[in-house]
Design a protein around this nucleic acid. Structure first.
Lengths: 192, 192
DNA sequence: CCGATTCTAGATTAAACAGTCCAATAAGGA
DNA sequence: TCCTTATTGGACTGTTTAATCTAGAATCGG
């Protein structure tokens, strides 16, 4: 055999995620991507295919990673609604260096809407994963009487998803962690 | 003198807004823009300057128009919180043909963040206009006892702004008017 | 050491891009 | 009618783009 294959595919993908998040798909040139990923042109084409394929892989990884992180922050063991609030607080408290880069998932929705089937598939699967986790907690909260009985957990799930998107847009627009936390508090307040 | 100047500058700008909303700044080519605007290349350059200048004019008009529309929907004469809810409902009930195109204001935030000074200025002035209208209504609601006394109107203003952004992202991702209305209801519920 | 494979750097291609230029037509006012 | 200005369509320029290709250096296992 011969030389070891690939070195730091994950690192390279992280760099691509950062570039795509900040400039969108169309706004990211291959040269910019290669410079950030610190690999040669041919390595990129060998490893990831083409620019579009790189984007889809970046989006997939970003979506699953960021949602798994939020879900992990929900497993605090506290009361359901407090666990949800804790997860939103943790998200709100990310350092500005991270928050200001924007969310690649929201960026993809804004840039492509429902017109790109592959992007839409990735978006839908991520939304479903998040929705499932939220819904489970809300059902639990309703059983324990923490969630107001008047509230439909399905509706509340959509509401919290939209709230998260709104927080992401606000963060990208420079909102402080404090501001983001007050937004999260009021969102949770509506469910009590 | 001579021939009348310009014919349908507003129409042309509307068409540009539609294209920019759907594909972003980088994703909109001049050829695509000209085809949608139905004017010749030189007319575009004579009238709007260059692509970037066209974008800034489109963003400015879109921002003011869409926010004035929301503010108008708040002037229902009803109780403050109901007026706010009515405005969000009206927004949620827009036809899919309009909602699925996306919001150029949110698109600009996602595409450029705070890096483009001119875009940021337009975004800030629009946010301020909307925030002022919401804040006035919330203060009024608190005076009339409709808004919960525990709530800081300033915080609630930021919350409602984020909610609106979240609704816009959801709409761009295909959410139905029904879904958007339930999101709006829960948002208002948190303030009572 | 050697053959296989990966990587890098740079040249290259063909298309798309934003923007300018030019010639011709259209439409007013004097 | 004539002069001025708008508008158009298309040719054109120079740059940037995504992607391929080539040649050589680096790195492993046998």
């Amino acid at each position: 055999m011969a030389r070891h294959k690939e070195f730091d595919k994950d690192n390279a993908l992280d760099a691509a995620i950062s570039v795509f998040s900040q400039h969108g798909y169309e706004g990211s040139s291959t040269d910019t991507l290669l410079a950030a990923m610190k690999i040669s042109r041919q390595s990129m084409y060998d490893t990831f295919g083409d620019k579009r394929s790189l984007y889809l892989q970046a989006l997939k990884r970003y979506n699953t990673d960021s949602i798994l992180r939020i879900i992990a922050d929900m497993q605090s063991g506290a009361q359901p609604l407090d666990a949800l609030e804790a997860a939103l607080f943790a998200f709100a408290s990310r350092p500005a260096s991270e928050a200001s880069k924007g969310c690649l998932g929201v960026s993809a929705i804004c840039e492509f809407g429902r017109t790109d089937a592959d992007v839409a598939t990735l978006t839908d699967s991520a939304s479903a994963m998040l929705a499932k986790a939220i819904f489970t907690l809300l059902k639990d909260g309703q059983r324990k009487g923490q969630l107001s009985a008047e509230i439909d957990p399905e509706a509340a799930t959509q509401f919290l998803g939209a709230t998260l998107s709104g927080m992401k847009v606000s963060a990208r627009n420079g909102a402080s962690p404090e501001t983001l936390r007050t937004i999260a508090s009021l969102a949770i307040r509506s469910l009590r």
